[in-house]
Structures are given as C-alpha cells and as structure tokens.
Amino acid sequence: MQKIIFIGAGSMAEALIHGWIKKNVINPHALFISNRSNKERLNELVESYDVNLLEDHTHLRDADLVILAMKPKDARAAMEVIAPHLSADTAILSVLAGVSIDTIEQHLGSRPIARVMPNTSATIGMSASGIAFNNHVTDVKRALYIQMLEAIGIVIEVEEEKLHAVTALSGSGPAYLYYLVEAFEQAGAEFGLSKEIVRELMVQTIAGSAEMLKSGNLEPSLLRKKVTSPGGTTEAGIKALESMSFNEAIVNCVRSAENRSRELAREE
C-alpha cells in the first residue's frame, strides 16, 4: 500500500507501527499519523519511527487505507471530521473495541471495512488478532489485510459478533498475564526473592509453558496433570487456587471484559 493513515496515536497504533516497520512489512514513509490534540505524542512517534504527520485532512483523499485507532468514545466525532475527505476507494481498518461495522458505515459510507482486534504484542510480532470484514472487502483485500496482520502475529477470521469475546480474551489478555506476573512477584517477595529473580523465573516459565501448548497435541488439563504429582507441592498450590475459585475468577474476568465491549457498542 502506498499510503496508510492512522487516526489516533495510542498504544495500539504504536504497536502496529512498530511491528510493521520492524518486520519490514511497510515502509515508514508510507505511514501517516494524526490525533485530536496531543502534538507531543505525535512528535514522539515521528522521531521514533520516521513516520509522517498528517497535517491536513485533505491528504486523506489519496489514502489507500485509513486505520481507526482513537479511543472508542472519540470515534463518532473523529469519523465526522474525516468523512468529507475520504475518497470512494479508501478502505477502513478499525482497531476500536465495541464500534461496529454498521456504525462505521453510517459515518463513513459504503466501502471496504474490516474490524480487527490485535493486542500490544504486535510490537514484537507476537499479536493474536481476530478480524471480521464487511461485504465490500474483496478476496484480494481480505488476503492483504490478513497478510499484514500475520506479519505481526497470528490472525483468525471470525464473525463480527465474536469480536466481543476476542477483545475480552486475546485483546485484553496481555494485561491479565502481566497482572499474574505482578502477583508472582509479590509472592516471591514474601520468601525473600527479588523482583528481578522472580520475573526471570516466571517469564521463562510462561514462555516454556506456551511452547509446550504450541508444540504438542496434549490438552492443557493433561499437561497440568503431568506436573501435578499426588501429594506434591504443585497439588498443594492447585488446591489453594481451587479454594479461591480460580476458574470462576478467570471466567468472570473474561465475562466482564466481554460485557464492557458490548456496552461500548451500545454507547456509540
């Protein structure tokens, strides 16, 4: 693509920019960024990635792809601003939680629109993304979008309705895992281990466990049982988690995030 414009310059926009440039998928000179008011943030991204500032909305007319990456609460106002400047050929890729394709079409017209929910691990090429398309996306464009996203991780096509669940699982998932590591650091501190030691141990443990899940055909429950000797230390820990309704807490966590995604959709 010759010209890709980001409307919004938050953490997800930066993760995509960083991932695409690092993987040599897109030339930074083809990327333009804009946001509502934070000039300092824009200048920071320009200096870090050698991308371009979108200084005039009239430059939207020759954009191949516009990426909606503002806060969901700002989406309606932002789309009203950019709508008059888009050409009929410009496609839209939205990373906004809860903002439906129908809503985007209402504001930006009938055109190729895709909604994707990546996560911030796109920065290192390890995103897990879900994507949905409207009927105007051709097979060629569909393949192009998927290729762009596969360069920064995995991408799975789902029905748009399922993006609420994808948002709650993989979109928010990194935060849950970081929160888990914080808890392990707190636990380690109780036994005199430094934060640095606990982090090194747990990061490798999480990475190794992820590789075990990826490389084998065993269910997570069977892998867990292979670690859990009867009467051993792991079993004692598992019983403590069960006593605190660990599974229920995780389900409620994901359910709350999924509900919030639906609330954002209703607030459009």
Rank of each mutant, 00 (worst) to 15 (best):
41 R>S: 11
89 D>L: 05
216 G>C: 06
234 T>N: 01
8 G>P: 04
7 I>R: 02
233 T>G: 05
252 N>T: 11
168 A>T: 09
114 A>H: 00
228 T>P: 03
35 N>S: 12
60 L>E: 02
248 E>K: 14
170 S>P: 04
124 I>G: 00
222 L>G: 10
132 A>M: 11
110 S>V: 09
136 H>Q: 14
45 L>V: 05
151 A>P: 05
86 L>P: 02
170 S>C: 10
262 R>E: 14
50 D>L: 10
40 E>L: 08
209 S>K: 11
267 E>L: 13
186 Q>D: 06
84 P>L: 06
121 S>R: 03
63 A>V: 14
155 V>Y: 06
176 Y>G: 12
36 R>F: 04
267 E>G: 02
158 V>Y: 01
86 L>H: 06
3 K>A: 13
179 Y>G: 12
125 G>N: 07
227 V>F: 10
10 G>C: 11
146 I>W: 04
209 S>H: 10
7 I>V: 11
180 L>G: 11
218 L>T: 14
107 H>R: 13
57 H>K: 02
170 S>Q: 06
179 Y>S: 07
154 I>Q: 04
261 S>W: 08
131 I>C: 09
186 Q>I: 10
141 K>F: 14
79 M>Y: 02
1 M>Y: 01
28 P>S: 15
222 L>Q: 07
261 S>K: 09
166 V>C: 12
203 V>S: 01
224 R>G: 02
11 S>I: 10
101 I>S: 04
110 S>F: 04
134 N>W: 10
165 A>M: 12
170 S>N: 12
95 V>N: 01
103 T>D: 06
91 A>G: 09
197 I>G: 02
13 A>F: 13
154 I>C: 10
62 D>E: 14
267 E>V: 10
118 P>W: 00
68 L>W: 12
150 E>K: 08
171 G>L: 01
99 V>I: 11
34 S>G: 11
119 N>I: 00
228 T>Q: 09
154 I>S: 08
258 E>M: 15
136 H>R: 15
30 A>N: 15
67 I>A: 15
179 Y>M: 13
169 L>Y: 08
256 S>M: 14
16 L>A: 15
234 T>C: 03
83 A>F: 02
5 I>K: 00
258 E>T: 15
218 L>V: 06
90 T>N: 07
114 A>I: 11
201 L>D: 08
196 E>N: 06
24 N>H: 15
244 M>F: 07
72 P>W: 04
84 P>W: 05
58 T>W: 03
265 A>V: 00
110 S>A: 09
77 A>K: 03
140 V>Y: 02
33 I>Y: 00
248 E>W: 05
20 W>M: 13
83 A>S: 09
197 I>S: 07
56 D>V: 04
233 T>L: 04
150 E>H: 08
253 C>P: 03
105 E>G: 00
256 S>L: 09
8 G>Q: 08
171 G>H: 05
66 V>N: 12
103 T>G: 08
115 R>A: 07
256 S>Q: 07
159 E>I: 10
38 N>K: 11
23 K>C: 01
95 V>E: 05
188 G>I: 04
146 I>A: 14
166 V>P: 03
206 I>R: 07
3 K>H: 05
77 A>L: 06
103 T>Y: 03
17 I>K: 13
65 L>N: 14
